[in-house]
Design a protein around this nucleic acid. Structure first.
Lengths: 199, 199
DNA sequence: GAATTAATTGAACGTTCGTTTTATTCTTGT
DNA sequence: ACAAGAATAAAACGAACGTTCAATTAATTC
């Protein structure tokens, strides 16, 4: 057999991306075979190679798209004010919202870095660093203006990132807490963590 | 050929555990082959099966040992006082010390849960839950006694665990900060996070 | 409606995987 | 000195892996 009725390259490529994110998030990159992925999409394994030259190319594509979407969402959400407190609040709230909405691809980006080649790992880490730099700048401004108490900007930034990204490890929608409640509590904890003045 | 001069089952088993932790932490469970592991130990792949019936048995052995060592270290370190603040301080300090000392096996326990069978996953998660329960109890006592400000005990416990375990993601000894400095800063951040009264 | 391009199949490639089997050598207790 | 058992090597097993290739059909273009 050959080309099937109604087949469309664009739709197939999108379906591959979706299936790959969900399968890799659940079972891990190494544990997911190209045949298993193809079966989920509803094609033969060979068809995948029309869209992604290798398995690693597919992984890199997914991770790059995730990081670029994260950076874009922060550019969209960042406030214009120079005041540290509302900027930190916006960062935490946007971060949690984005990561809860994209649990699966966040999982892929956090767990599968070691399956990338050196160059591609470097590229992803560069994108990640530029995102974390935004948080460090907020903390540095807050410390300099006396609005925050921060012992070490880099360390505090990592602590906050780990804390808020960790939401996706345990949070499941439709449970005890809503996204809004979780975000509110994390916002309060973050503000206390940096010793923000009450106002 | 067959048995080699100076071979000793006890030493070989310990060498297998050490090599497995370091290789799996670096490359991931699925990516490490039994042949690669055997080469690191300095034996043939078949020799591994004298000590561990299957690859998954080996992984489960490593993860169980890690969790039991963690619980044991807390039993050793927990203070006898009923005051929440020193108890929380001891928890955070012991947690960071333990995890920095055992970066590799912590990595294995955090990353490879999905490679376990259902029953074994449940067993590991049970051990983990009993550890987290200790932290929740401290937070609950602190909130009830008015020593802490805690919006949600479960959520705050997860936030603290994620934050302090995250140290191993970025911290490397022999760098800018010492373990003691990192521990001190995390201790201060944790105390502010839970709104601990100064005293 | 013929020619061209796009999308997919089915079969096969060589390699590596976890694991088993069998035979051989070393160590230990008597 | 020798038997018993522990420890390992070497080779092999079938299955699964990522990937390639030629053939074939559907859609598009002229």
């Amino acid at each position: 057999m050959a080309r099937t009725a109604g087949s469309d390259g664009g739709k197939t490529q999108a379906a591959i991306r979706d299936a790959a994110i969900s399968l890799i998030a659940r079972f891990g990159y190494e544990a997911v075979s190209m045949r298993q992925l193809a079966a989920e999409v509803g094609v033969q394994a060979a068809a995948l190679y029309r869209y992604f030259p290798t398995k690693e190319d597919l992984l890199y594509d997914l991770m790059t798209a995730h990081m670029q979407a994260l950076l874009a969402s922060w550019q969209e959400a960042r406030p214009s004010t120079a005041e540290p407190a509302p900027r930190l609040a916006a960062f935490v709230r946007n971060h949690i919202r984005f990561h809860v909405e994209r649990r699966h691809s966040t999982h892929v980006n956090n767990m599968e870095l070691r399956s990338l080649s050196r160059d591609r790992l470097t590229a992803i880490l560069r994108l990640r660093a530029s995102y974390e730099k935004e948080l460090r700048q907020i903390l540095r401004d807050g410390a300099e203006q006396g609005a925050f108490t921060v012992e070490d900007v880099t360390l505090t930034a990592m602590a906050i990132i780990q804390m808020v990204t960790g939401v996706i490890v345990w949070f499941r929608p439709d449970e005890r807490l809503s996204v809004a409640e979780v975000t509110d509590t994390y916002h309060k904890m973050t503000m206390r963590l940096v010793g923000a003045r009450e106002n």
